[in-house]
Amino acid sequence: MIPELHDKRLIVVTGKGGVGKTTLACALALQSAREGKRTLVCEVNARERISALLGRPEVGPEVTALDENLWAVDVRPHEAMREYALMLLKFESIYNAVFENRVVRYFLRFIPSLQELVLLGKILFHLKEKRPDGSWRFDRIIIDAPATGHAITFFSVPQVIIDTVPPGAMSSDASWMRDALVDPATTAVVLVSLPEEMPVNETLELHAALRDRVKMTTGLVVLNGFVEPRFGAEDAEGLSPELAEMVTTHRTREAMSRESLEKLRGLGVRVVTVPRLLLADFDRKAIERIAALLGGT
């Protein structure tokens, strides 16, 4: 694992939509598991993709083993709510009587941000779980988090609850969740970006918003789709206009990659580049290659 992440128990992968968050989360999880860390990778109320990327059947809302030392779960609101309620109530019969009640279910939908709280609560609960011998059930949890705007809302939820909900079970849970998220010794954010102007700008904004508004620390920036230098100006000489344009185009992408890298380095956080992978099928092999490219082992 990359040095900036190797002692972190919670890794939050986020960025603009379409930059490759899920792929990255998946590659990090694979790498973590390979190092012998018991790793849980979580998708949050999304269309499940990680199991398919690793060539495994769908895992659904139950924590399911995918590989040696690797588990996955697709955290969904209904099941998370049930788990959360059962944890507090201890008795299934009470849960069924109260929470499966139509009126109550309706009511719970309108407790502000309760859905996000239980989703996050379920993920972070796994951070505290221990095995009979006292060791952690999961050494590391990786969250394939929502994209930019929703990520800020999502991770702000514990603070929103602390500010709006009077003391009680919900707000004390929110307090420890907030503490775990903002503790730089426990948690690191991985921001995924692309070498284009808008994704880079969004990465800079997201970094600032997470730092200032949510108080979370960026541990690593991954610049995906990086184009390595290949051509010099002289390579375009003596070619047909079409071919010369291909060279120019490639050089533009090289330049864009270089500029993006410089801008992102301005954050003062380590930036790792991952080249654009051109493969016929985007499957487990691609993930394995990205995991290898991330290096750090």
């Binding site: 309620a85 109530l89 009470i94 109260v98 407790i111 909900v165 009077p166 003391p167 009680g168 919900m170």
Partner: peptide, 11 residues
């Protein structure tokens, strides 16, 4: 009563 164990009665 059960719900308020989650949210506090004030909520």
């Amino acid at each position: 009563k059960t719900i308020s164990r989650f949210t506090g009665t004030e909520t």
